[in-house]
């Protein structure tokens, strides 16, 4: 028996009297939530694009604004690059945690979750550093020394909202990690809460990919 065609599979799923998405309620809800959240970030990015294109002041070059001085050389966007790498790394460790969750490996799941939390905290910390630095340099939501006021406004809005997601994610993961380490999921015999938390965390990373590309690089 060959694998049924994709189309056939969709029809079967949507036409049956079983749960449409063959997964637990929690996971289905997380997916639907992430779709809704994607619309929030999508709207933010679309609005940012619209505001940026219409802005009258010159749009500051992001690589200059976010440059760091190492010794005497100016390295553009260094901190942002590191932050990106930190977040991607955290996504990797999260994926590992989920895999060990499937294997019901309590210690390794907990360990990698904790590692993810740490990386997430690092990211938030660097974000805080970035904000402080910019505010010291005179960046405000309503004005900045480099040009169009929409630049600072978009920066604080986009990174602030994303940062809130990361912070919430850190707290969420911490709870899951503690639960995992204390063996709550072992007793349930089911590690899918780790997977659900993983979905959220990966999504936050996914959003950062777009913020990194559209706000910092373009």
């Amino acid at each position: 028996m060959e694998k049924p065609s994709t189309l056939r599979e969709i029809i079967t799923d949507w036409a049956s009297d079983q749960p449409t998405f063959r997964m637990s309620w929690g996971k289905a809800m997380m997916w639907i939530f992430l779709l809704s959240d994607a619309f929030i970030f999508g709207s933010f990015l679309a609005a940012y694009a619209g505001a940026r294109l219409a802005a009258t002041g010159p749009w500051p070059a992001a690589e200059k604004v976010f440059a760091l001085h190492i010794g005497h050389t100016e390295v553009p966007l260094l901190l942002i690059a590191i932050m990106t790498f930190v977040l991607i790394s955290s996504s990797g460790t999260m994926a590992l945690a989920v895999t060990y969750g499937y294997q019901k490996n309590r210690t390794k799941t907990g360990l990698f979750l904790m590692l993810t939390v740490l990386l997430g905290l690092t990211f938030v910390g660097m974000q805080v550093f970035e904000w402080t630095k910019l505010i010291h340099e005179g960046f405000r939501p309503w004005e900045n020394p480099m040009g169009a006021p929409q630049f600072g406004a978009s920066f604080f809005m986009l990174t602030g909202f994303h940062g809130m997601h990361v912070t919430a994610g850190v707290i969420y993961l911490l709870i899951v990690a503690i639960k995992a380490l204390r063996g709550v999921y072992d007793r349930l015999g089911d590690y899918q809460n780790v997977e659900i938390a993983g979905l959220y965390w990966h999504f936050v990373d996914l959003v950062w990919v777009f913020i990194f590309a559209f706000f910092y690089l373009l």
Partner: peptide, 12 residues
């Protein structure tokens, strides 16, 4: 779920 985000963003 898909429309309120735009209001939220506009509101923010």
């Amino acid at each position: 779920l898909l429309a309120f985000p735009a209001l939220f963003v506009g509101g923010v």
